[in-house]
Design a protein around this nucleic acid. Structure first.
Lengths: 183, 183, 183, 183
DNA sequence: TATGAATGAGGATTCATTCAT
DNA sequence: AATGAATGAATCCTCATTCAT
């Protein structure tokens, strides 16, 4: 890929992310092109259609997150810390706008599955180490974290995050983010 | 207002609610008119524009909720019970589709303020009675409940609701929905 | 259907026929709307899409022709005369522009089959009465007439028509359009 | 012109012919470039625009046919045979796709005129030798032959060709492709 | 010179809104 | 007053053509 094409692709992704965030996923292709300082045709050369653009952005974000969680999961940090790290990483990403993207899209399905898999292992590990409530199914916990991080303006220390993370703690560890039961 | 006009207005609101829920707020005016068994012209006689229709539905829902909370707040039930009652009532309403409606609309602002006010009093009462964590601002709690209640498919006993409500409990009362500190 | 709607539909069909004839089937919907003195939206209310419009025009033309041939076939005219009548009728219609319309479209398939059927019977009758060459398959003759009739500017007495009709005559009757063998 | 330039030009013409035949003249420049294994830029270096490319192909085909007819006309074959030879040659060429090219284009006008001229002489010769109907104008006959050879899938022995050639025969020679009146 | 990336006008289609019946 | 036909701006997307690499 030529240097200018790569640069423009990057410009498009950035502009699209910005526009989608501002408009809640309903910005037009013309708007995005303008925000990128390019013509619409260039958009379509890089992304065959609107859905493809959304899918690519989703794929990018989700892949990045999956890689970060995998890296953290490979350390010997407490699993609870790994989960907190995921929330910290995720709230930095433009996830709110991605709720309308279906994970059926093959471009998205792979990374989504990868993230789901590693998160699932971390959740089970956290329940095993006694830092996470044991009375919730794995999928319930990951869905819950999904809701925490997929809000406009989400932060890892905002009220919802604080309360949910507290509510996920194993009994007796509430309000003690760093503690692991028995320690 | 004549009897048939009131009837048509009712038909429209019902149809619009149904259509908006089915399509995630993106149903067309034509769809709504058809669902109501009326012509588009009749729609526009009752509601000046699409935003007005959404605002009206929002107004209806929010007013109903405000009235319910006010009624519950007028009893001597524990304030925590009043909050739980609000969640139970709210998840029955089509709130998920209303996230895109801004509360700036004058039609919505009144009822929204009314709901916010009564919820604020209940939250403070709950903190005073020791059933609700005291380390959160009133607005943080109401925002939090808003998120719990404004999801597609929300229920008052689904994982998010369970965990958030648990996280909102005063320390020592977690996992005990009915208890009030000191009892 | 309301009076003005019927009138507009008629205007659209006329305008579309004219535009398609002028541009060889490549006129835009905007062009057609303008030619009809209407907005594009009105076009789309009457015809769901471009293909639908072409299909409708085809259907109209073909149905009209089928009815004319059926009427002629019901008389006791010589079958050769019925065929000549078909050519006379058909060259008056805007058939040239319809070559790109596939008869797969269900709207077109019915009338096309109807026309094909009645023409087939007339061809066989003509061969039986000895006015039409017997060494050609029915479908070959109808295809041939199709080509005669589906040209821009076709007339029933232009060189191609004259020569082809002459070539279709039974041996011995060439150059005698009115004669039937043995008479 | 350099050797590789000539080679590319040849590649383009071949690819364009193939693509236009496959798509009925509506293939895109990108498609053609791809089929030629070249970039679009190279296409435009050789041909200033789409119409120019079509004109060139037309020019090629028509020139080739003109040369073939001229060669046959230079022999002492019966003129009827020369006409049949033209039909045989022409149906092998991709003429159907060229109907949309106007002969006004200066690139096409020359060869078209050349072909028309030689065909005209052959037609007159055939009428003189008594093998071709004498009651048709020269231009009528050449137009007629044009229609015969400019169809998708035309063959020199398909029903239309058979019937038209038969219809063009002088009276008394019908159904005898090889005969010349008086022989 | 060859390449293919960029451009933007043009075309099909949708839908909120207006207006004639 | 109710209806639904008409309107046209807005949106997605294509493709002939230009231009930077």
């Amino acid at each position: 890929m030529r240097a200018d094409a790569r640069r423009n692709r990057e410009l498009i992704v950035r502009a699209a992310t910005r526009v989608f965030m501002d408009t809640g996923c309903s910005g037009s292709m013309e708007d995005i092109a303008q925000a990128a300082g390019l013509g619409v045709g260039t958009l379509y050369r890089h992304f065959p259609d609107r859905a493809g653009l959304l899918a690519l952005i989703t794929c990018d974000v989700v892949s990045r997150l999956a890689a970060q969680v995998e890296a953290a999961a490979a350390t010997d940090l407490p699993r609870w810390e790994v989960l907190l790290g995921y929330v910290r990483d995720a709230v930095r990403e433009p996830l709110a706008m991605l709720k309308s993207v279906s994970t059926d899209d093959p471009v998205v399905a792979g990374p989504a599955e990868r993230l789901h898999a590693v998160l699932g292992r971390v959740v089970e590990g956290a329940q095993a180490e006694g830092s996470l409530r044991a009375d919730l199914e794995t999928a319930a916990v990951t869905d819950l974290l999904g809701l925490v991080v997929c809000r406009p303006g989400a932060r890892d220390d905002d009220p919802l995050a604080t309360v949910v993370l507290d509510g996920l703690r194993a009994p007796g560890l509430e309000n003690r983010p760093d503690a692991i039961r028995g320690q």
